[in-house]
Design a binder for these strands. Structure first.
Lengths: 226, 226
DNA sequence: TGGTAACCTGACCAAACGGTCAAGAAGTTT
DNA sequence: AAACTTCTTGACCGTTTGGTCAGGTTACCA
């Protein structure tokens, strides 16, 4: 398939290592998502990667080390995928963009989101530092942007922290709790790609209205066909 | 402390059983919340309950059986705590009440929420039936209520299913991902009781605005004190 | 007061766990 | 093709796991 992402695809010294580490981490991500850290077994990860267990331990000495690598990979992935939000941006455009990108991550990388969710549920023992430093810095830098928008009358007054909490909650629920949404919608196990489009649109509408940026959705204001 | 909840507190035949089962289930809820099903150990549950491991197995033959009991208890708790939503209700009142009750559950029973979240993340292997039957029936009965409100022009048009998904997401994030919110707000490990009040108010505002039921929060419409 | 049912628990077990290791296979460099 | 590094893996080890059980203690009822 598309094994060739970039940089040093063919030979080169660390070729085999690079390939196998990626294979193991991909398998580990799925197993950690399904079972959590303590519930995941190295044997299950090895089997999913199609390798003997001892080989997994050759590349990652301990389960903790592998888990850390998976977590770091997820944080890197998210950082790369999400554009920033600055005071110069148009609120409607910037937040719509942000929400759509987050839902797209829920669709394309649900396992990553579930590993992260698993960690948060347990009190984030291995992410405390990240949450209290990088993430907090990120949001502390974004809060003045929201406040500036409010002061300029561009959006309705709202608590910036809770705005982000709620956006995160809504965008990630379709990855973390996919099973619940799918069951209620009668989809079976997984949501359809279209469901994510609908989720994205509904979250954008909800947030835009909450900020007083009504988009006048389908024409008529209230009431519709029954 | 307040061990005496109700019904048959003093003697009666199944007195000891009732007491110990409750004690074990309470301990189990915490351990399952912290570690997930596979990660939780019967030894840890026993220790938390202050009983020998063998005693736990006297009341609950297997870990699965205990887990099921905890899950059933949670569903019962939620059913009891949440009032219904009917077409006769005023949308603003009914949904405000619903949101506030859900956030109150996140504050008072965070472990229950986290056990449930853990189960959903793993694909809900033991809750599929509940999700596809009871929960789906509940929401399928509520969707016409929302649609009626829309048709009557009482609220702005919105997808009823995704409205509930988003409300669930926002109200539960403060229990399930408490560690994230607390870290970002600089609260340490846990949110303060006031944080939940704020969360509740912000979610209500967000949903009300999304439904065109602006509550005119603090007086001024836009812009505020700098 | 005696009998019966419910409750308690230390000691134990097979299976599964994370992790190690030595010995060999494959790849690379000179 | 020799010398060396990297990779591979079956077999193994100490520990932890969910669960059992026999034999005891306590509570209840006649």
């Amino acid at each position: 398939m598309n094994e060739c992402t970039a940089e040093t695809t063919d030979n080169s010294p660390g070729r085999i290592r690079q390939l196998n580490e990626a294979r193991i981490m991909q398998a580990a991500e799925q197993v950690f998502a399904d079972a959590g850290f303590r519930g995941a077994t190295t044997a299950a990860i090895a089997e999913r990667a199609g390798l003997p267990k001892a080989n997994v331990h050759y590349y990652f000495r301990t389960k903790s080390e592998l888990y850390r690598a998976v977590l770091d990979n997820i944080l890197k992935l998210w950082l790369d995928a999400l554009h920033d939000i600055t005071a110069d941006d148009d609120p409607r455009e910037a937040l719509t963009h942000y929400i759509e990108a987050k839902v797209e991550l829920s669709r394309s990388q649900p396992e990553a989101s579930r590993v992260f969710a698993n960690e948060l549920i347990r009190g984030a023992p291995r992410l405390k530092r990240y949450l209290s430093n990088e993430l907090r810095d990120w949001i502390d830098a974004r809060v003045p942007v929201i406040q500036a928008w409010i002061a300029q009358g561009k959006i309705a007054p709202i608590d910036p922290y809770f705005l982000f909490f709620n956006i995160w909650a809504m965008t990630q629920t379709y990855a973390d709790f996919q099973s619940q949404c799918a069951a209620v919608l009668g989809r079976g196990d997984k949501l359809k790609p279209e469901d994510y489009d609908r989720a994205s649109a509904e979250i954008v509408t909800t947030v835009m209205r909450a900020l007083g940026l009504e988009t006048a959705p389908t024409g008529a204001r209230h009431g519709g066909d029954d």
